[in-house]
């Protein structure tokens, strides 16, 4: 178990209990966190589970692979700390992770 905090663009916080082994995206979906769409279901094929990983955590996560990087380039509102949350696997080391969500998963 790891506690993850999702922060919507308007500042609203959602703290969820994530299961080890599931993706950060799935933890958000299981807890109905608004702002994550996850159209493709977690296969790095749609860029609608885009989030920003707080700097304290970027070094604790494996770097994005080629598929994730390519897909991030298709996302909107991209920042240097952009990740696809479907590609982040929950481990005990991620207890306390903070993920900020973009203003939208599309161009709107």
């Amino acid at each position: 178990m790891a506690k993850i905090t999702f922060i919507e663009a308007d500042g609203k916080e959602h703290q969820v209990e994530a299961q080890e082994g599931q993706s950060v995206m799935q933890a958000a979906m299981d807890n109905l966190v608004p702002g994550i769409v996850a159209e493709c279901g977690g296969f790095a094929s749609c860029a609608t589970c885009h989030g920003y990983v707080d700097e304290a955590w970027t070094t604790k996560l494996p770097a994005p692979d080629a598929a994730e990087e390519g897909m991030i380039s298709c996302a909107y509102h991209v920042q240097p700390n952009s990740r696809l949350t479907c590609q982040l696997k929950v481990t005990p080391a991620l207890d306390g992770l903070v993920v900020r969500l973009p203003v939208s998963q599309t161009s709107e």
């Binding site: 296969f43 790095a44 094929s45 860029a47 080629a66 598929a67 897909m71 909107y76």
Partner: peptide, 20 residues
Amino acid sequence: DPPQHTAYRAPLNQPLAAKT
């Protein structure tokens, strides 16, 4: 099927992204 699919799909994503 994934994971093979993810590798084959990747080259199509960018040329067909809304931004592009």
